[in-house]
Design a protein around this nucleic acid. Structure first.
Length: 293
DNA sequence: GATGAGCGA
């Protein structure tokens, strides 16, 4: 309970609360201040009020912070309690509410997938501008770079590892690359096409994607891609696994494909796993014939 | 016995 200097209770009773004479002159009073709690757990609150006679009264409330609670706090926690408050909490009585709902507005920055948004919009705008002029060729094959002829998926060279000098010139510098292909600023240039990239002899051109493809048949119905990967990865890096699934029933069709990065690994896998008992069935593992498309 | 899905500038 709080007492003022004369020993009279200072807290107003509920009944008295709204019965004062309308005037609210509280803003004329000095601000309320909180001191402590000090090392002994003593906390003082100094407030000023007008009493019934309209005189300014200083009210000092002294309380003892519960020792028990304090004892439970770690040293670090006690230390944190003494940190200076910031934000809206500055106006809060220390310890009056341990948790408070923030009324502050906090702007969150949205993460972007890649590149700057501003840049993207600009690019889109440029394309639109070109469209407007009617001169834009939007169909550019990403494999061979040919414009207006076919999509990447229809590229006659899509199974080849890299475009050769036959249909795309290797630029001297990145800037030239962008200028030559008419690409917008910031377009991706694959490492193999960057200036200074070494070109391995044209003869050992490796096939892309579909190469070192191994067909696995006689799989049990519940064999899934992770299982296949688990089984085949012991031979070397695997670039892709696929298990044919019946689109209607969702059931495995009993065969799949595994693509190896290295041909030798694929070969060893075929030799080792063909005829290998797996899930009570005997696997057949052999080279896959290229996909017809 | 059997050879794969899907997207779009």
């Amino acid at each position: 309970m709080s007492l003022d200097k004369s020993g009279k209770p200072t807290k107003m009773r509920w009944g008295e609360l709204d019965e004062e004479d309308g005037e609210d002159l509280d803003f004329l009073l000095p601000p309320r201040q909180v001191i402590g709690p000090d090392d002994n757990g003593i906390k003082k609150v100094i407030e000023y009020k007008f009493n019934d006679d309209g005189n300014k009264v200083k009210i000092t409330t002294t309380t003892r912070v519960r020792k028990l609670a304090k004892a439970r706090l770690s040293k670090r926690a006690v230390e944190r309690r003494n940190w200076a408050k910031f934000g809206d909490a500055v106006h809060e009585d220390a310890g009056s509410r341990l948790t408070m709902v923030s009324t502050e507005e906090i702007m969150l920055e949205r993460p972007r997938a890649h590149g700057a948004k501003a840049e993207e919009t600009k690019i889109a705008g440029d394309n639109l501008a070109q469209l407007g002029k009617g001169g834009a060729v939007l169909m550019v094959c990403r494999t061979c770079g040919k414009k207006g002829d076919h999509w990447t998926s229809r590229c006659p060279y899509k199974d080849l590892a890299q475009p050769t000098e036959t249909f795309i010139e290797k630029p001297a510098a990145t800037e030239t690359a962008m200028a030559a292909s008419g690409a917008t600023k910031g377009a991706y240039v694959p490492p193999s096409m960057r200036a200074g990239a070494e070109r391995t002899g044209g003869s050992d051109m490796r096939r892309r994607n579909e190469e070192n493809s191994v067909r696995v048949t006689n799989l049990s119905e519940d064999t899934r891609e992770p299982d296949l990967l688990e089984l085949f990865r012991t031979f070397g890096p695997v670039s892709r696994v696929y298990v044919a699934i019946d689109q209607k029933t969702g059931v495995s069709r009993g065969f799949g494909f595994v693509n190896f990065v290295n041909k030798e690994d694929a070969e060893r896998a075929i030799n080792k796993l063909n005829g290998y008992g797996y899930d009570n069935l005997i696997l057949r593992v052999e080279w896959a014939t290229p996909r017809s498309n």
